[in-house]
Write a protein that binds this DNA or RNA. Structure first.
Length: 427
RNA sequence: GCGGGAUUGGCCGAAUGGCUUAGGCGCUGGAUUGUGGCUCCAGUCACGAGAGUUCGAUUCUCUCAUCUCGCCCCA
């Protein structure tokens, strides 16, 4: 049997109803904040990710699905292409390519699949879905303002509430500018040198490869040492410090709760200043339901104009996973099941179905078959959880009035053809 | 890439070195052919793949695959 590739999965009903509910709700929220949708290709030139995400990141170094194009045209042949492992680089590429700043488009959102070749786990797949948004534009558009950071975070709090996620935590930090980080890294290495020998094997490795990651350590014995290490907050320059203060002030003013986490560091090279994560307890080791931050230098790194930006990506798989609601609760069931009774009734049933659907586009109409015995039609209507069953038999056709039965109450009435749609509609 | 745990029918879930091997849900049909949801009856569907041990394996061993929980990293 051919199975779906490792780390991929089929989403089936009723789960798809839950996914659609999430996406519809999210679109509503984005609309209220005046964000507009962008759809970028699911594969891009490999160079985009190498430059945009960072050569040294795990994503680029070992997790991308990459292949070489073998097109006929000289321009295609040999080009290295990659399934997108995240969507920010693609959005910024499009921003530069189409000069979106000239069109006043600076608040964009996307929903779509991303690909990383990782070991699958709970809430981690090789094809996974992200819902993300970016605010990007020339500094004159206000894109650098702490007000944008706060608005994004407030939007996220609203979004999670609307979707029905309870018990989330917003963790907040500032990772400063590249210059701040360089000085911090230096100080960190210096501070680690005398003590690293006492730490766990992972930390000893991190101390060499990427000192920032020492803060991710969860080994209890190492915590006391980690507490003594310098924090990024001590290395922020005046501009970054003020920026972060203002973000916190606005958040407090609008009433979005947050926790400062001086140990929060982001994995991707392009992040600057504000960094954040929303976590949820029900997710095990992958407790981050979404992550994001500011990336003021990304556009320039990709050859574009200076364009400060801030964005986030929600792991949609993880979001759905932490939803308390069951898929059944958002699954729409039929309003009416039409039961053609006996030979020749399919035609009349089809006409009725068409009339009902045309007269009220919100009605969900399920059509049975004339070969069914009436008992079987009832069973089918019950199984589908239809609200009404509409019987289409010879008597009804003669009278041009049809037996309509409410299945839950058992109440049955004869309804003239012209009144059917109104009768069935939800009140 | 590295560890631990799993892998029984459409789904959940027992037992067992040989004697069809549960139970529940589901699905199909029936209990006299224009009225269901309850009940009853009948039917339906399996031991992840390969190799080995054995007279014989779903049950023991090994390898692989997949899933899962961690590490790494991230959404």
């Amino acid at each position: 049997m051919i199975k779906s590739p490792r780390g991929t999965r089929d989403l089936l009903p009723p789960d798809t109803a839950l996914w659609n509910f999430v996406e519809a709700t999210v679109r509503d929220v984005f609309r209220a904040y005046n964000f507009h949708e962008i759809r970028t290709p699911i594969f891009e030139s490999t160079e985009l990710f190498a430059r945009g995400v960072g050569e040294e990141t795990d994503i680029v170094a070992k997790e991308m699905f990459t292949w070489e194009d073998r097109g006929r045209a000289e321009s295609d042949r040999g080009q290295s292409l990659t399934l997108r492992p995240e969507n920010t680089a693609g959005v910024v590429r499009a921003y530069i390519e189409h000069k979106l700043w000239d069109r006043g488009l600076n608040k964009l959102f996307y929903i779509g699949p991303q690909f990383r070749r990782e070991r699958p786990q709970k809430g981690r797949y090789r094809q996974f879905y992200q819902i993300g948004a970016e605010v990007i534009g020339p500094a004159a558009s206000g894109s650098e303002s702490p007000a944008r950071d706060a608005e994004i975070l407030e939007l996220l709090a609203t979004l999670l509430d609307r979707v029905g996620i309870t018990g989330w935590t917003l963790e907040l930090n500032s990772v400063g500018c590249p210059a701040d980080r360089a000085r911090f890294n230096e100080a960190l290495r210096a501070a680690l040198e005398p003590v690293v020998a006492k730490m766990c094997a992972d930390c000893q490795r991190r101390a060499v490869t990427n000192p920032l990651r020492v803060f991710d350590c969860k080994v209890p014995e190492d915590q006391s040492v980690i507490e003594t290490l310098p924090r990024i907050s001590q290395f922020l320059d005046e501009g970054c410090r003020t920026h972060f203060e203002q973000v916190k002030e606005i958040l407090t003013a609008v009433g979005v709760p947050f926790t400062l986490n001086g140990r929060l560091v982001r994995g991707l090279d392009y992040y600057t200043r504000t960094a954040f994560e929303f976590t949820h307890g029900a997710l095990g080791a992958q407790n981050a339901i979404l992550g994001g931050g500011r990336y003021d230098g990304l556009s320039e790194a990709l050859g574009g104009p200076a364009a400060p930006g801030i964005g986030f990506a929600i792991g949609e798989d993880r979001l759905v996973l932490s939803l308390a609601a069951t898929a059944d609760s958002v699954l729409r069931t039929p309003d009416v099941y039409i039961a053609p009774l006996g030979p020749g009734m399919n035609r009349e049933a089809a006409r009725l179905a068409r009339e009902l659907r045309r007269s009220n586009k919100d009605l969900v109409v399920e059509l049975g078959d004339e070969s069914f015995r009436l008992k079987k039609s009832f069973e089918a209507a019950d199984k589908l959880k239809s609200r009404y069953i509409l019987i289409v038999g010879e008597n009804e056709v003669k009278a041009d009035a049809f037996a309509l039965k409410h299945l839950a109450s058992g109440e049955q009435v004869s309804v003239p053809r012209a009144e059917l749609a109104a009768r069935i509609a939800r009140h």
